[in-house]
């Protein structure tokens, strides 16, 4: 459990997917104009990251590595993500129309969100085990969610400010993201072992 929390906190705050690795930047910039849509997309990202990460871990560990087919990793991962998104969309539509109405339009967008594929690739290169990859998926999703609602809230506020015309919209979004990146950098000093009850070692 300690290790789980350790990776969860680390991936949510210290190594934030958007602000430290620029993953999922397209939808981050495009869908952050209003707070409500940003919340919907953020929730969908947590959802899909949390589900695809363990699936990809199992595929990588029990199919790709034993069969020595690592070079097929990209194709298989993206196929898993695309089909999972499709499946999740159908299941959610059937069992929870409320959630579907909230997430509906964002789910297909997520297939091409780099944060999802990036998460799975980081999971492989950092050699996480199953629990660690679940923690990484949920934590990374939470970090992405927090970052996009923060940006959306700032952009809603800034709409009434007197920004130079050429910087309006996109230019400001880039500047704000940069400043948020520096702000999140100040979390680097946090020692995640605090959350691991001083038992685990800090994961790389």
């Amino acid at each position: 459990m300690g290790e789980f929390l350790n990776i969860f906190i680390k991936s949510a705050f210290i190594e934030n997917m958007v602000l430290a690795y620029f993953l999922g930047m397209c939808s981050f910039l495009a869908v952050s104009k209003t707070l409500s849509t940003a919340t919907g997309l953020g929730l969908a990202v947590i959802f899909v990251l949390g589900i695809t990460m363990p699936i990809n871990w199992v595929i990588n560990e029990y199919v790709l590595i034993p069969a020595e087919l690592e070079f097929l990793r990209f194709i298989l991962f993206i196929a898993v993500i695309a089909s999972t998104v499709q499946l999740v969309e159908m299941v959610v539509e059937k069992f929870s129309p409320g959630l579907y109405a909230a997430l509906g339009i964002f789910l297909p967008l997520i297939t091409v969100n780099c944060a999802i594929l990036g998460g799975s690739l980081f999971m492989v290169s950092r050699e996480y085990n199953l629990t660690e990859s679940i923690a990484f998926g949920l934590g990374g999703g939470l970090g992405w969610f927090l970052a996009i609602i923060a940006l959306a809230a700032i952009r809603e506020r800034i709409r009434y400010s007197n920004v130079p015309p050429a910087l309006r919209g996109l230019g400001m979004a880039f500047l704000i993201t940069g400043l948020m990146g520096i702000a999140f950098l100040s979390l680097t000093g946090i020692d995640p072992t605090v959350f691991a009850g001083w038992s685990g070692t800090v994961a790389e």
Partner: peptide, 26 residues
């Protein structure tokens, strides 16, 4: 720092849109 890339691109956008006012986000 990673954030610098955002600043540099923001400046590129600023310069480009200053020269071409058709691109300004209304």
């Amino acid at each position: 720092l990673p954030a610098a890339a955002m600043f540099v691109i923001a400046v590129f956008i600023w310069i480009q849109r200053s020269y071409n006012s058709k691109l300004v986000d209304v």
